[in-house]
């Protein structure tokens, strides 16, 4: 597997800028997948390409939890995602079904489920799998990180 930077370099060689959709299945910390996705996203934008959408699914939904508390000398993936999303106005969708099962809720959903409070980080939207289908049909490339 080439590194994310090498992959982005590969795509840089194509003539036209492309719009990528990223499907992120891996949680923060446990595996490398989400960290690779973040690096790929940065490299994509740095190479002049666009990001059509981030779609967090499966255990990837934990990347959108504000309750993730990294050790002080380690990076917090959820915080870094949020910074990238804000800086580049990226469309980021968290699958509502996958998130609800895993305890990632916005305020509205928390109220609906009778929970004490929401924990979805600002900048992400809770929505359905239709947003993944839309990304798969409209983005130039979809890359799965899982």
């Amino acid at each position: 597997m080439p590194t994310p930077t090498a992959l982005a370099e590969l795509f840089k060689k194509t003539a036209d800028p492309m719009n990528f959709a990223l499907l992120i299945l891996g949680p923060p910390y446990s595996t490398q997948a989400a960290a690779s996705a973040l690096r790929f996203a940065r490299a994509t934008l740095a190479s002049g390409h666009g990001i059509y959408r981030l779609f967090f699914y499966h255990d990837g939904v934990h990347n959108a939890s504000s309750l993730v508390s990294a050790a002080q000398d380690e990076i917090s993936l959820p915080q870094q995602w949020q910074a990238l999303i804000e800086q580049h106005k990226i469309d980021s969708v968290v699958c509502i079904a996958a998130a609800t099962r895993r305890g990632v809720l916005n305020e509205q959903e928390a109220k609906r489920q009778g929970k004490t409070g929401g924990n979805l980080i600002d900048g992400h939207e809770l929505s359905g799998l239709g947003q993944l289908v839309d990304a798969a049909t409209n983005a130039d490339r979809v890359i799965t990180f899982g």
Partner: peptide
């Protein structure tokens, strides 16, 4: 940010 070209051929298939 780059936007996708609008002159796409057929709708993309999903595998």
């Amino acid at each position: 940010m780059a936007k996708p070209s609008t002159d796409k051929p057929a709708q993309k298939e999903i595998l």
